[in-house]
């Protein structure tokens, strides 16, 4: 492993070195992964089901213990400051609490004692995701898209420098997907957080990220620079540039799938 200078690390928000996660001391879910995510960068993790994307994401968040290797965050993660926001696959809102209470929850958990401050921050966060008039509604009164917006508002309420997203739009229809993709771009333009997003969707990964890491069988096989220009908008999905890169990514994924299915020993997936 090459020695990295302090300056270089300062520009890096997340650094994974030889990260290995094993379940039951034998089945290896993530195998010696190295990945650097630069400050303010969005990286998509893409790959087939069961390839270890979510496990790697949980490891980045400190929710998964490592068999070996290390995850370093810059600045170092202090859980009590809510430096990391996490958007789960499901909205995972507490059904007994109102939308506002759900969004206030992270602030309460990290020990913000002033209720008015918490409330104000939660209202701002809901406003940012365009849910300003759903404060007192309970999760079951919100549509799927609104629940996911509330979930994003909850992840952003602590003003995190790192946002981790685990297939956040997987359960939504195409229209909502596109809306929420636009919302995420809009939020990133304003807040410039570092983000790692797990997705199955090639189009989504191209539209929303700077780089795309292709994962397979617990290993990052390649990290591709995304040539699409910034600022991004869903209209770019109709450009020849987008189509060309989409084809390239699809070929890369398919090629690797074929290659590994030939070499496959019928393992993890």
């Amino acid at each position: 492993m090459s020695q990295v200078s302090q300056d270089e690390f300062d520009a890096t928000s997340i650094r994974c070195r030889d990260v290995t996660v094993a379940f039951d001391h034998q089945s290896i879910a993530v195998d010696r992964v190295n990945l650097d995510v630069r400050r303010g960068e969005i990286v998509s993790l893409i790959g087939p089901s069961g390839c270890g994307k979510t496990t790697l994401l949980r490891a980045l968040a400190g929710l998964q213990s490592l068999a070996s290797g290390e995850v370093r965050l810059s600045p170092p993660a202090i859980t009590s400051e809510g430096q990391i926001g996490f958007v789960f696959q499901q909205p995972a809102l507490l059904p007994w609490a109102t939308t506002l209470q759900n969004v206030m929850l992270p602030l309460e958990l990290i020990g913000h004692t002033n209720r008015d401050d918490r409330r104000l921050a939660a209202i701002e966060s809901l406003h940012a995701v365009k849910l300003a008039d759903a404060h007192e509604k309970r999760p079951h009164e919100l549509s799927g898209g609104m629940q996911m917006r509330a979930s994003i508002a909850r992840a952003l309420v602590t003003n995190p420098s790192i946002l981790l997203l685990d297939e956040p739009f997987a359960a939504l229809d195409d229209m909502l997907r596109s809306d929420l993709g636009r919302l995420l771009l809009d939020l990133w333009e304003r807040r410039r957080f570092t983000a790692v997003m797990v997705t199955h969707n090639i189009g989504e990964s191209i539209l929303l990220s700077h780089r795309i890491a292709v994962m397979r069988r617990g290993v990052i096989e390649t990290v591709v620079e995304n040539p699409l220009a910034w600022p991004r908008s869903p209209s770019q999905m109709r450009t020849p540039e987008f189509a060309a890169f989409y084809g390239e990514m699809a070929d890369a994924l398919r090629g690797r799938e074929n290659e590994s299915s030939i070499l496959s020993d019928g393992g993890a997936d």
């Binding site: 949980r58 968040a61 400190g62 929710l63 859980t79 009590s80 809510g82 990391i84 996490f86 789960f88 995972a92 929850l105 992270p106 958990l109 990290i110 602590t158």
Partner: peptide, 8 residues
């Protein structure tokens, strides 16, 4: 996970 994330 949500509660662990914030060190609860």
């Amino acid at each position: 996970d949500l509660f662990s994330l914030y060190g609860t």
